[in-house]
């Protein structure tokens, strides 16, 4: 991927924009490319962002389809309400900004104009969780899943990687409800090959185990898979489920895992309150499972600032950390 062949204007090779659009964040290309594929398939798609076209890679889409791209400037609330207005005309709008701003600053516009109005707007919250590292806790989104999950009529998806995001975007063409896509910073290793199978609300089971099953979402699927491989290699029976759709949650997958395993461990780049762990807890409590639930994530605190990889290590949200958490539980 190069920046120069997809942008309308030249981009200085030494600039931050160039770095964003190149191999430094390859996952960013999936968003633009998936939207372009929808356009090529004849879907009436528009995209918009709030002064972050390089951060989310939509610059690629904007260069390809300038008439289908709206630069909203730094006005996230206006962007979300306008997306709702766009959707009333038969156009399917995708609007993207940092998850921290989309989920919290625009919460009421999402509830009123998008979800309550039942309009097929696609909201892309990128750099979710602690992906913005040292940019500051202001930029971390560890509450967005809890907020979005409580908004009626909104589908909430947290893809594991770029290919799964692309598959979810492709599937969204036939999805009548509004959708919140929660994605990372485009630097995560891929879990899947191009365009894996994807169905909203249908979890993906990677491994089954009797000792413990990890239910992970988003950027936590890859390190969880690495951890599960190491744990299984040492003789532990550990399963793994990619719960890419937080709402509607795949209850059957949760209950099957809770039937099979003694312990369920949720892993999320989010506060352990209200997100994936909260959603799984509700299902298990209501069903009265014998399995015990342990939630792993940010423990109801404001995340520290540091380079993201340092933060993942600190919060035991990398492969080694998740492996340690499981070994401690099973010890």
């Amino acid at each position: 991927m190069t920046a120069t062949n997809t942008l309308a204007g030249p981009v200085n090779p030494g600039s931050w924009q160039y770095r964003q659009l190149n191999a430094r964040a390859p996952g960013l290309s999936y968003l633009s490319d998936a939207l372009s594929a929808l356009v090529e398939d004849g879907h009436p798609v528009m995209a918009g962002t709030a002064d972050l076209q390089y951060s989310n890679g939509l610059a690629r889409f904007a260069a390809r389809y300038p008439d289908r791209f709206i630069q909203f400037g730094i006005s996230e609330q206006n962007m979300v309400s306008a997306a709702a207005g766009i959707a009333t005309t038969g156009v399917m709008p995708f609007v993207a900004t940092f998850a921290s701003f989309l989920g919290l600053l625009c919460c009421e516009q999402i509830r009123m104009d998008v979800a309550y109005s039942a309009l097929p707007v696609r909201l892309i919250g990128h750099h979710a969780g602690i992906a913005l590292g040292f940019y500051g806790t202001s930029h971390h989104a560890t509450e967005d899943l809890a907020i979005m999950r409580s908004i009626a009529g909104l589908t909430v998806v947290n893809p594991a990687d770029g290919p799964q995001l692309a598959a979810a975007i492709k599937a969204s063409a036939d999805h009548p409800e509004p959708i919140y896509f929660r994605i990372g910073r485009g630097q995560e290793p891929n879990v899947y090959d191009d365009l894996p199978d994807f169905r909203f609300g249908k979890a993906i089971e990677h491994e089954t185990g009797t000792d413990l099953t990890i239910i992970a979402c988003g950027t936590m699927v890859h390190p969880s898979r690495e951890a599960v491989r190491a744990l299984r290699a040492s003789g532990l029976s550990v399963g793994l489920i990619d719960m890419h759709t937080i709402k509607p949650l795949d209850r059957d997958a949760v209950l099957a895992a809770a039937e099979r395993s003694r312990i369920i461990l949720t892993v999320e780049e989010h506060n352990i309150l209200g997100g994936l762990g909260g959603a799984v807890a509700e299902v298990m409590a209501e069903a009265g499972t014998k399995a015990v639930l342990i939630r792993h994530g940010i423990r109801d605190e404001y995340s520290l600032i540091a380079p993201p990889t340092h933060l993942y290590r600190h919060y035991q949200l990398d492969a080694a950390g998740i492996e340690t958490v499981v070994r401690d539980i099973l010890a």
Binding site: M46, N78, A82
Partner: peptide, 9 residues
């Protein structure tokens, strides 16, 4: 904002 969106759509 919503009205502007209708114009754009």
């Amino acid at each position: 904002s919503a009205g502007l969106g209708m114009v754009m759509g």
